[in-house]
Structures are given as C-alpha cells and as structure tokens.
C-alpha cells in the first residue's frame, strides 16, 4: 500500500515540475512581501535589513494617525470608489442594453472597438490626453473660455474641479470595459421572453425594467460586491498621473496608494509608508473577507472561495 502510494507520487513529479515556476513566482512576488509587512513595526534601517532593524512598537502607526493625512486618504479612497461603483454599474448596464439593441454584428463591433480603446491606454497617455483639455495655456477648455471672453481656469491649482475630472476620466476609460460583462449576460437571454412580452403589448421601457434588469440583477450584485471588497484599494495610476502629482490638489486627489508611494519614494519615510501600507493590507483583507462571505451567502458558485 505504502509502495503503491509512493509510486503514485512519483507519477506526479513531472506535473509538479511544470507547476514549479508559477509556484516560485507567486511565492516571491506575493508571499515573501507578506513577511515584509513587519517593517511597519520596525525602525527600518537599510543597512540592517528587515530582520536586523530594531522594533518600534506602534510608533509608526501613532505617527500616521496623529496627522490628518490618514483620515483624508481613507476618505478619498472610499468616496471615489463608491462613486466609481455607482457610475460603473449605471453606465455599464446602460451601454450594454444599447449595444444589445444593435442587431447588426458589424455595427455592434465597431461601437465596441471604439468604446474599448481608452481602456488600452496607459495612465501616462491618459494624463497627456487630460492635459490637452485642461492645460493652463494650451488646454482646449481654456482656449474656448478665452475666445468667449471668460477668464481661463487654472485646473491644476484648484481642488474644486478634481472630483468631477477624476470621475469623468475614470468613466471615460472604463465605459467600454464595464459594459462587456453585462453584455455577455444579455446576449445569453432567451429572445422568447421579449417576444411574448411584445405580444402582450409591453413597451420597450417596460421590457427593460420588467425583463432585462431582473435578469441582470445577479450579475450586478456580483460585480458590485466584488468592487466593494476592493474599496480600500485605489488605481494608483489614475490618482498619480491625471492630477500630475500636483501638491495643491492632494486634499482631493490623494488616496492611500499615492500617499504610500510619496512617503516611500519622494520622502524616503519608510516608517510612515509601511504603516500606511500595512493599514491598507489589513483593512483590504477584512473587507474582501466580509464581501466574499456575502457573495457566498447569496450565490455560492460566484464566491472566490
């Protein structure tokens, strides 16, 4: 019996070898940094390394939460994500319904090609595109304002415009991407539902609210729940590149990710940045677990685990 089992394992060795590179990569890239989380509790010194640096207790966290920064970056991260979730859902569903209405395959594909284009651009390029509109002297918006005799606006120096600009840029980039999954669900809907509704004299609007939306409900709940689980993570590129890292705007553009980056790379403050990164990892983990539990309760096969 033991011999047979041993032989059985032997048979798997080539398979394990195939899996080895992926296993090692995940270990290095995703598991080893977890050990590094203890940096948040250390007074890190490059020359001594993670292990040799002296413990600092909770002083890094005291330092982080003593400032208003912790509140601002958390608030910004959460509020932007909530707005993104609402807009993603509304636009994603709407665009999917409109696209699904187009019966000609070629036409539908042309629309989709253009709608997906922004998603393929790097955030650096998106930042250039935004600057072409918002720039002080060359921006097209200020060119227009001056031509009708209005005062130009220094967008990169005024906080009040940025929540709208960031929401717009984000949705501009994600609108095609966000509609794909809803569209895939819609394509799978049996056409006879609509035919019989039509025979009963249902208007198009009634068909959407009575048939389409209820059928999309579980996809919507799934995607919203998944995004809620990621509410403490932000798109570093969006918040770093699009406002062009302007200090005057930090109040409304700084999120946990941009804050960690700046504390680490620009200020070299390992204590502060590691405390913020640790804080983010933990709250992220907790929210993901909560929302995954919710998904599992609602529909077991959609849960991550």
């Amino acid at each position: 019996m033991a011999a047979k089992k041993k032989k059985n394992y032997k048979r798997w060795i080539p398979v394990f070898l195939l899996g080895l590179p992926g296993f090692l990569y995940l270990f290095i890239n995703n598991y080893m940094p977890l050990y590094g989380l203890i940096i948040a509790f250390k007074k890190f010194d490059y020359s001594k390394g993670i292990f040799g640096s002296p413990w600092a207790g909770l002083s890094n966290f005291k330092y982080l939460f003593a400032t208003r920064d912790a509140f601002i970056i958390t608030r910004n991260t959460i509020l932007y994500n909530l707005a993104f979730i609402v807009l993603d859902t509304v636009f994603g569903v709407a665009i999917a319904i409109f696209l699904n209405e187009i019966r000609k395959k070629a036409t539908k594909k042309i629309y989709q090609t253009f709608l997906l284009l922004p998603y393929l651009m790097s955030m650096v390029v998106v930042s250039y595109l935004a600057y072409a509109f918002l720039g002080d002297r060359t921006g097209i918006i200020n060119g227009f304002l001056t031509s009708i005799g209005k005062q130009p606006i220094s967008f990169y120096m005024e906080q009040k415009y940025w929540p709208f600009i960031l929401l717009f840029v984000y949705e501009w980039r994600m609108i095609g991407y966000g509609s794909i999954i809803y569209l895939a669900t819609l394509v799978g809907i049996d056409g006879s539902f609509y035919e019989s509704a039509e025979l009963d004299g249902a208007t198009k609007w009634q068909q959407i609210t009575q048939i389409t939306l209820p059928l999309l409900k579980s996809t919507i709940i799934m995607l919203v729940t998944l995004s809620m689980g990621r509410i403490f993570r932000s798109d570093f590129g969006l918040f770093y590149q699009v406002p062009r890292n302007q200090g005057l705007l930090y109040g409304v553009t700084d999120t946990i990710d941009t804050y960690v980056f700046r504390a680490l790379m620009k200020n070299g403050d390992i204590g502060l940045s590691s405390a913020a990164a640790f804080y983010q990892s933990i709250v992220c983990f907790i929210t993901i677990m909560i929302f995954n539990a919710l998904i599992r309760k609602y529909s077991k096969e959609d849960a991550m685990f």
Binding site: N30, M32, P33, I39, S273, S274, A277, S281, M304
Partner: peptide, 13 residues
Amino acid sequence: TMLFNGGLVSTYI
C-alpha cells in the same frame, strides 16, 4: 494572493 498582499513598501524593499 487575491485576498492579501504585502503592499508597495515591503514589495519594493
């Protein structure tokens, strides 16, 4: 790996 990550600082170091 989708649930928990070390974040930028420890990855960088």
